[in-house]
Design a protein around this nucleic acid. Structure first.
Lengths: 292, 292
DNA sequence: CATCTTGCCTTAGTTTTCCTACGGCAAGAA
DNA sequence: TTCTTGCCGTAGGAAAACTAAGGCAAGATG
């Protein structure tokens, strides 16, 4: 008999959280992004946990990980636990008077669509600090501390989503550029400004409009859509414009449409809020203001 | 608008765990003991959490703490979350082949009652390592990683408890001491060996038996009951014997009863196991073997 | 009344944990 | 081939967690 002097210790909490995130995403890098750490940190946490359990929880393949049977079995339990913990954390946050209202959005939406409307909202809630976090992938609203997210996606019809508008694309450019090319409706010899993540825009529009596009790869790429918009305003080339993101530039005359045909990408601009018990009180009204 | 570069961070997990434990016990020291840290650590964790929430969760009084209204409201959420996490942790532990079987017991029980029976059990499960952790207060089996606990208490009739026997006390001493005092049934001029936590034994027995005891404080105190038993065997004085703890010494003749009247303390020797989904498979059989 | 005890606080210093940075490797894509 | 992606490993440094020790206030004890 070994009389242990100390109570049996469970595994480190952070390791469990890392496992839960990694298992849910089936990816260390995705988990790392969610938890705001590097993938190496996730790797170590999971190794710690596997050491504690004396059993591998992931199978590491070169092109990604997969859960072992055992890891598989644990995921549900851990997800339930950390969901409950997320609830408690929100309850704690809600005690804080005038806590920041956290918004998650696609970088382009955060820069081109949000600012104007956020201005109005801030007038209604001068005491609340609105924080906007830009990211490529929508966060889990049941897990992270965001109060609202705005992304392009296909709406799922749930009451926690509001569809603002369809995402329609149409070629645009600076008026000066259009004048130069007056009478010439083609896209010959023009730079195509492109966003990295929306590289597919031109082919999609081409197919939909029937307009033949050659060399749509001809032109600079930008990591942020808003940079491409600025370049387009400066007359650097033609841009596939997402209508909801460039409406201001169009009405102000900084950009004009180059071709009458617009086409839908299949996505919509969607606002999503946490499901009920996790919402803070201002959410409903803020969504209303955002949706105009 | 402040564009936060990083996702909003929740409070540290360890701080939340500390809060949950402290709120449940309404005591920092009790929480510290449960988590195997010092009270200072708990204090700091809670301060961290209060800082994060921007709101006090405890009211600190000189003779103890109490929850504020806000802390009160949070407790349920956090307890639910950490209960779920404890479940997940057990599921993880159960993956481990031949994990230690963890037993929590009162020090005196661990030393005087358990060893003999544990020997038999170890024969049945030679591959399992049995760990015994001594402590004064029964741990929460739904929260901590114990598989079984043995303490004196009043049974609550739940199916997770087995009552082994009543806790009966009776004065005992070494045979040599009894011989010297032959014919003298009183307790005059004898050292009363006493255990610190059971200081009430002599008055209780006195009241029950009708035997007048004077100077029951006359004699050495021991922090462990087993030390007092050893002293009694050595003839150092008379001890209030708890029958289930000294049965071996009595049958072996190392101790003899000094007075025929025994009295019940109201408690029983109770084995408790976690409620079902958290039990490991061997538990049932082990309880059976312990109960004989 | 003085003294002890209990339970919390605070500070300082140490230990442990956690994380990043960076080079490497294997598999699939270009 | 060469690039890219996603994981691993190690080393070193930053941050968190913990301990130790002295203090204080309110009851309990003598």
């Amino acid at each position: 008999m070994s009389v242990a002097p100390k109570r049996p210790k469970g595994p480190p909490l952070n390791a469990m959280r890392a496992f839960e995130a990694a298992a849910r995403h089936i990816s260390f890098v995705a988990a790392a992004e969610e938890l705001n750490v590097t993938a190496g940190a996730i790797s170590q946490h999971i190794k710690t946990l596997e050491g504690w359990a004396g059993m591998p929880l992931f199978r590491r393949n070169a092109q990604g990980v997969e859960l072992t049977r055992e890891g598989q079995a644990l995921l549900a339990d851990f997800t339930k636990a950390f969901d409950a913990l997320a609830d408690a954390t929100r309850a704690l946050r809600d005690l804080k008077p005038n806590a920041d209202f956290q918004i998650a959005a696609l970088p382009s939406i955060a820069q081109l669509w949000l600012p104007k409307r956020l201005g109005k909202i801030r007038e209604c809630y001068p005491q609340i600090n609105f924080s906007v976090t830009a990211m490529e992938t929508p966060p889990s609203l049941s897990r992270e501390l965001f109060d609202l997210s705005i992304f392009f996606s296909v709406p799922d019809g749930s009451p926690n989503q509001i569809c603002i508008c369809q995402d329609k694309i149409i070629p645009v450019c600076a008026p000066s550029l259009l004048n130069r090319k007056q009478g010439d409706q083609g896209f010959e010899g023009i730079s195509f400004l492109r966003d990295q993540t929306w590289a597919n825009d031109w082919p999609m529009w081409s197919q939909n409009s029937g307009v033949q596009i050659r060399n749509s790869e001809n032109g600079p790429q930008f990591s942020l859509y808003s940079l491409a918009v600025e370049e387009a305003k400066a007359g650097a080339g033609v841009l596939m414009g997402h209508l909801c993101l460039i409406e201001d530039a169009l009405t102000a005359g900084a950009l004009t449409v180059m071709h009458d045909v617009s086409c839908s990408t299949g996505n919509s601009l969607v606002i999503q809020v946490p499901r009920m018990p996790r919402q803070r009180s201002e959410t409903k009204r803020i969504v209303q203001l955002l949706a105009n």
